[in-house]
Design a protein around this nucleic acid. Structure first.
Lengths: 216, 216
DNA sequence: ACCATAACCGCACTCAATGCAGATTTGCAA
DNA sequence: TTGCAAATCTGCATTGAGTGCGGTTATGGT
């Protein structure tokens, strides 16, 4: 019975969501550092001790579905065409993930974006998650091109892609105007990926026109 | 009087070094998590409270000269030849930094390498330092090529390079065999980064043969 | 010698995080 | 329905990181 969701599971999922909502609310109203775990637990009506059976730390609250993006990328790798090389596959995967960022409309995503820039602990946690995701993607990429791409090269390639996008984003997003405006953020994301990935596009069989969005 | 080092300054520098040494010793003997700041302070014969006027946190002890590498990279950018493009300059800068890692002989560097792999807090701190360094380097790179390289592209380029190296290293370093052999690691990193960064290199005037590979 | 400043240090405090043990709830089968 | 085992919830106590404050001591310049 794998698909079976018991009452216990539903209840637990609901409490978990309540925690995220309560935390979002409190972080927005009073700030991150000013909000204690005791506050969050109280707002979600559970004991302070119980909080730690849902999230290992305060930062984890900001990244509740961290596997989803990795999963999307892996599927993009799996559904590659016969003529696609590693760069093309990775490119499509990253665009996939970027579009997945459509949840940018959600309050949590906007809040996360702000906190990543201002709270060191949150930034640190995000970088770790990103690095883990990178490693996972690289593993699958290497598996998808046996013989042609060893583990190390796959990791380097993935790291280069992700690093390029991250670097570009970092510069684009410290423009204070763009924050709070989801459309501007998304445009920045797209432009960042385009700028960052252009060299690989030129190197492979792709042309810029085939990209699924005109540069904003 | 800028070059003047007072007794105060000398004393302070000495205490700082003592702290690093004591921490290194304790971390190696008892482990990172098992060593408290109180232990370190006691070993260096200062009050626990005073520790925090030397280092803001326990992790900082592992990165006592974090600016040195950035400084080296910036100098490499400054001393570029007239025909060098952004990619070449960045490549030389990174090699400079990599060679700087020859301090791998030092106990602290070896310890740091181990702790980065095993202690999440340390890894998180390192990634933050790396990201800051990346940003700083990108800024200088853009300044060195006005007109030819805007802020965003410079950040993307730098991110790609650093990301490639980091990604490759991550895979290489959790192979227990290679850990003691810096030469093999360095060779593997160069090979992998070449694979990942070929497009960037081709985009400029370089050819892969001109890379200083035969070493190691 | 004098004084302003910087460094040192103990004390009290807040908060994150963990271990433990008892109470409660849920799943499942008799 | 009943009963039992497992999972969950919870309070309590404890450790350790980190900060603010205030008083003391050491240092640098005059």
């Amino acid at each position: 019975m794998l698909g079976h969701v018991s009452l216990r599971d539903r209840k637990r999922a609901r409490t978990r969501q309540t925690l995220v909502d309560a935390a979002t609310e409190l972080f927005e109203r009073n700030g991150y550092d000013e909000t204690t775990i005791a506050d969050i637990a109280a707002a979600a009506d559970i004991g302070t001790r119980t909080f730690f059976s849902y999230f290992a730390s305060k930062e984890e609250l900001l990244f509740p579905e961290s596997d989803a993006r990795v999963q999307a990328a892996i599927e993009a790798i799996g559904s590659r065409g016969p003529d696609d090389g590693p760069a093309e596959v990775l490119l499509r995967a990253l665009h996939e993930v970027g579009d997945d960022n459509d949840d940018m409309a959600s309050r949590l995503a906007a809040l996360r974006l702000r906190l990543v820039r201002t709270v060191p602990a949150v930034r640190g946690r995000m970088l770790q998650i990103q690095l883990d995701a990178q490693r996972e993607i690289a593993r699958h990429l290497a598996a998808a091109f046996p013989g042609r791409l060893d583990e190390v090269s796959a990791a380097a390639l993935t790291g280069a892609f992700v690093g390029a996008v991250t670097g570009a984003l970092q510069v684009l997003l410290d423009d204070p105007d763009k924050l709070g405006d989801p459309a501007a953020v998304q445009a920045a994301v797209r432009r960042a990926t385009d700028v960052a990935l252009t060299p690989w596009l030129r190197a492979s069989a792709w042309t810029v026109d085939r990209l699924p969005h005109g540069t904003a």
